[in-house]
């Protein structure tokens, strides 16, 4: 039987216990895990209803809903962990509609043998991220799979939010002449995670940029409600996001290499590993596309927020039947910015 003790509202993580199959078996062990760990950490009135679902009133208007699975390895990385990531990622997907995120759900798939202390750290971090963002986790689920059938813990979160009246943000609204904005430095998350991955570990002071972007988006919407597109460049990086938007809107995009903010640590790691920062994942950045007339106002709103300090206008939308994303290189030439093919594999020489 695990020793998960609730003391002063905090889980005691000093024991050496691990998740076993009984934690998913529907019996007392599972009830204790849910009560002592999850309910205590995520504590909020809707969760405290203890129903199979959360019930809440909604106002008139448009809602946004999203879901995302988190399988990151390793579970803990510089600047975050799978728990905070599972909160930020889903909040950001809601926020990319310009919506105000309201509630989250969380499902945990635990692998037999996971140290309960690790699970405790993940859940506490997740609860803290949710509190800080003001978006509670109102319903959840836990399953345990046999050892070897998972990778410690997988988390699936879903979220709902309300879209303010008059806001219509969608990936198909980019028009020739629009400006392309980026909220800050790219590649921080991917490189921070790679730096601690087995077989690759290299020393860096770099932290993941994992963050909830909804307050930044709220400021942007207040400054210029007619934002055409918003997207967070996560997997596949800035390159994939720009290609998605170009394809969805049936336009081309031209960006300028000189204007893309990249930390020297990220550039250095990419040089060493033979990677392109444009393909590296971010978890706290967004790309915005808006009419050129709104660009300066949006840029000012971005830069006034702590998560948008390094924001820049990086390019513009053009007419292009091929829907190419092109980049003017700092060197003076031009090139395609392509999707990544397969895994990003390091070059060998």
């Amino acid at each position: 039987m695990p020793h998960l003790d609730l003391r002063d509202g905090r889980v005691d993580l000093s024991h050496d216990d691990r998740v076993d199959l009984s934690h998913g078996g529907g019996g007392r062990a599972m009830a204790r895990l849910i009560e002592d760990l999850f309910m205590a950490a995520f504590d909020n009135p809707l969760l405290a209803q203890r129903n199979d679902q959360a019930q809440f009133p909604v106002g008139a208007g448009r809602m946004a809903m999203t879901t995302d699975g988190y399988v990151i390895s390793p579970l803990f990385f510089p600047g975050g962990d799978i728990g905070s990531l599972a909160v930020h990622g889903t909040i950001n997907d809601i926020a990319m509609a310009g919506a105000r995120p309201l509630y989250l759900s969380a499902a945990f798939i635990l692998e037999e043998g996971l140290p309960l202390a690790d699970l405790g750290r993940v859940v506490q971090s997740m609860a803290e991220a949710s509190r800080k963002a003001g978006v509670p986790v109102v319903t959840g689920d836990t399953k345990v799979v046999e050892k070897g059938k998972g990778d410690g813990v997988f988390i699936v979160t879903a979220g709902v939010g309300m879209v303010p009246d008059g806001v219509m943000i969608s990936g198909d609204r980019a028009r020739p002449g629009d400006a392309v904005l980026l909220s800050g430095t790219i590649g921080d998350h991917g490189i921070a995670v790679m730096s601690v991955r087995e077989g690759l570990d290299f020393g860096t002071s770099l932290l993941s940029d994992s963050a909830a972007l909804h307050t930044l988006v709220a400021d942007m919407v207040a400054a210029a409600p007619d934002i055409h597109c918003l997207r967070d460049p996560t997997r596949g990086g800035l390159a994939a996001t720009l290609n998605e938007l170009a394809r969805q809107s049936g336009v081309g995009i031209v960006i300028e290499e000189d204007r893309i903010p990249i930390r020297p640590e990220v550039r250095g790691a990419c040089e060493l590993l033979g990677l392109d920062p444009l393909n590296i994942a971010n978890e706290g950045k967004l790309v915005a596309i808006a009419a050129a007339a709104d660009a300066d106002r949006l840029l000012a709103a971005l830069r006034a927020h702590p998560l948008g300090r390094d924001a820049a206008i990086i390019g513009r939308v053009v007419e292009d039947g091929h829907r190419f994303v092109q980049m003017k290189t700092s060197f003076g030439g031009a090139r395609v910015v392509d999707w990544l093919s397969g895994e990003q594999l390091p070059r060998i020489c």
Partner: peptide, 23 residues
């Protein structure tokens, strides 16, 4: 390719790719 060097060369200079990729 990555830096777009061909954009900086006159049309009379042709770059021919060689076999130097081990893969």
């Amino acid at each position: 390719s990555r830096y777009g060097i061909e954009d900086l060369l006159p049309g009379t200079v042709h770059l021919v790719h060689g076999p130097g990729c081990p893969v």
